[in-house]
Amino acid sequence: MGAVIELNELTDAAQKAFPADKLSPSRDESWQLAAEMGWLMVRLPEEDGGLGFTREASTALHLEMGRVLAAMPLIPAQLGLQAVIASEDFAERADWLERLAGGEYAPLPMLSAKLTQGSDGSISGTISGVFEADMAVAVVAQLPGGYALVPLDAPGVSLVERPIWDPSRRLFDVVLESYTPTLMLTDASGAKALHDRLSGEAQLALAADCIGAAGAALDMTIEYMKVRRQFDRPIALFQALKHRAADMKTRIVVAEALLWKRVRDESASVTELAAAKVLAAEAFRFVTEEMVQLHGGIGLTDEHPCHLFLKRALLNLQLCGNADLWNERVGREALA
C-alpha cells in the first residue's frame, strides 16, 4: 500500500507543478523544477543517495510529462542515469551519479548509432536520436567496445541539430571523428545485458509519454466538441462524433491497462515491454489523427495545439523501434 501512496503523491505533485492547461512549458525552467523536486533521482537506489523508487514511479512521472507535452528530456535523462547506475565497475560511477542527480544531463540516445572502429581503436560515425543535446554534458553511447559516457567537449565530438517536425522537442546527432573513448561503462560482453535493461525501460517510458499525451489530447477534443456549435447544437451531441470519442477513450484505456500490467511484471521481456509501447503509440496516433479531424479547420492552424500532439505521436512511433519492427518480433516470439 505504501507504494500506491507514493505513486499518488508523485502524480499529484507533478500535476501541481505542471498544470494541464500549460502545454509545452519552458524546457530549462522545467528541468530546474524537476531537479529541485528530486525527479532526477527517483530511480537512483537509496544506497547511492537517491529515492530508490520502482519503475512504477518513473512511469507515473513520464505519463504526467506526456500530458503537458514536456520539452524537458526526462526520459533520456532517466535512461542515461540508469546506464551509470548499472555500471558497477565504472571507476567514476559515484562522481557521475552525484553530477547527474544534481542536474547535469547525460542522455541515452533514442535511435540507433552508425559507428565504425578504426585500426587505432578510435571511433567515427553518427549517434542519432539525442534529445536536447545542447544542454548535455555527455551522451551515453553503445560503442563497438561497449557502453561509454562520451563527453560532448571531448576532442573528435561534435553536435549537429536535426530539425524535426515535432516542435515540442529538439533532436541532435552526435558526430564522432576518430574519437577515443575514455569513460567506458561496460566492456563489449557487458553491453548486451545493459542494452536489454535500458531498451526495456525506454519502451515503458515512451509508452507512458504516449498515454499521458493521448489522454490530454482526448480531454481537449471533448472540451472543444462541447463548445463548438453547428446546426444550433454542440457537435458533441452528434452520435457519429460521440462514437468516435468513445473509441478514442477505449484505445487509451486498453493501452494503459497493458502498460501498467507490464510495468509491474518484472519478468516481462524487452519484446513484451515494446509491445506495450507500440500499443500506446498507436493509440496516441489514432487519438491525435481524430483530434485534428474533429477540430475541423482550427486543427490545421499553427496557433492551435492539435498539431503539437499529432507530431509528438508520429515521432514517438519511430523512437526505439517502430510498430512494424516490434509487431513482427512479437509474432515471431509467439510462434516459437
Binding site: L258, L279, D324, N327, V330, A334
Partner: peptide
C-alpha cells in the same frame, strides 16, 4: 507481413486480458 499481423493480434489480446483483469 503475417508475423506482424499475428504480433499485432497477440498484443491486442494481451491488452484485453489486462483491461479485463484491471
Amino acid at each position: 507481413g503475417v508475423l506482424r499481423d499475428f504480433g499485432t493480434l497477440v498484443t491486442q489480446v494481451d491488452a484485453v486480458c489486462a483491461i479485463a483483469d484491471q
